[in-house]
């Protein structure tokens, strides 16, 4: 062990030790009680990790400096700009129309997440079905609803009444149990829920499928071998383990859905963005109201992210 490493260390260590020379001999004596510290040992003392200093990192200081300049610029801009109209932002941040729009956004996100995930779960199970026609249907579903842009879907479902004026529930090509005028059923709200849920469903299906198939085969074999009923094997062994894999992409999916709800203003729904637009078309305070919307979107995503990390911790117990 007389490589170049130790030798080069030895060359630098004595210099650094100048100030702590009193501690030097005491330390080198410590490992061997009973063996008196001889001058020879002290002189040729091996390097001691405790004497090391943190690496110098000039790049780190540069990065901090750049960040400080950027932050100062932002603060200066916010304080100096007379177009930002922060007082208008403050005035409308908690104004009733804005809060109503916020509620609509939240409700749409929650409903479309729940329905989209439920639909996705059904489509996923259909894809894994042993019945071929069921598998084909699921594959077609995923292909169609993943291809059509969400904006197009919203417009399409909103105009469904033109294509299918009467919605009826009954036996195909047989008697009907009830008929509804499509114009009554398809409101902006139902069109938004249908469009966003359908748009969400193929992504949920694929996320759930990848989660389920990530559970190691050995886990399922162990459950099978114990004679666990199929239902328990799925709900108590497979699904909880899949959830750990499902949560991160599902979280991103919910966040994109939340942002996707901002499209519903094209079918005359007053969501968060719609509320901001209604105000600024009256007052022409466009930028301050967009900032109001931005701030609320940031808050909503922060809340979602917090919930997501909590769930992820909850489901990664044991890993």
């Amino acid at each position: 062990m007389t490589g170049p490493g130790p030798r080069s260390l030895r060359a630098t260590v004595p210099g650094r030790r100048g100030a702590t020379s009193a501690a030097g001999p005491a330390r080198s004596a410590a490992p061997g009680p009973g063996s008196a510290p001889s001058p020879a040992v002290t002189a040729a003392a091996a390097p001691d990790a405790r004497d090391s200093r943190p690496e110098r990192r000039p790049l780190l200081w540069l990065a901090w400096a750049v960040l400080a300049v950027l932050a100062a610029q932002l603060v200066a801009f916010v304080l100096r700009s007379d177009r930002l109209e922060l007082e208008v932002v403050g005035e409308y941040l908690f104004a009733e129309p804005v809060l109503d729009g916020l509620l609509t956004t939240v409700v749409l996100t929650v409903v479309a997440t729940v329905l989209g995930t439920a639909l996705g779960a059904v489509v996923c199970l259909a894809r894994l079905s042993s019945l071929a026609p069921v598998r084909y249907l699921a594959t077609a579903w995923i292909a169609v609803f993943r291809s059509v842009p969400p904006l197009v879907q919203l417009l399409f479902w909103f105009n469904l009444a033109y294509l299918v004026p009467v919605l009826s529930l009954g036996i195909p090509f047989g008697p009907s149990f009830g008929d509804w005028d499509a114009n009554d059923v398809i409101t902006p709200y139902t069109a938004a829920v249908i469009g966003l849920s359908l748009y969400n469903s193929p992504y949920s299906a694929e996320i759930i499928r990848s989660g389920l198939s990530s559970v190691p085969r050995g886990q399922l074999e162990a459950a099978t071998s114990l004679g666990l009923p199929a239902r328990d094997t799925f709900f108590r062994i497979r699904l909880p383990q899949a959830t750990r894999i499902i949560l991160p992409p599902m979280g991103s999916q919910v966040i994109s859905l939340l942002k996707g709800t901002s499209l519903v203003s094209v079918i005359s729904m007053t969501d968060l963005l719609g509320a901001a637009r209604e105000v600024y078309t009256r007052t022409f305070e466009v930028v301050p109201l967009l900032i109001v919307a931005i701030l609320w979107y940031i808050v909503l995503v922060a809340v979602l992210t917090t919930g997501q990390s909590w769930l992820e911790r909850r489901f990664s117990r044991g890993y």
């Binding site: 004679g227 328990d232 108590r236 489901f315 044991g318 890993y319």
Partner: peptide, 30 residues
């Protein structure tokens, strides 16, 4: 299968359950 016990080369303990739960889960459910 409930009348036979199997021990695998790769253990295959249920990763998301505690050790005790690994042992009592199947007697309760099955």
């Amino acid at each position: 299968r409930r009348r036979m016990g199997m021990v695998f080369q790769s253990f295959n303990l249920f990763a998301h359950l505690t050790v005790a739960r690994n042992v009592w889960e199947a007697p309760v459910r099955a």
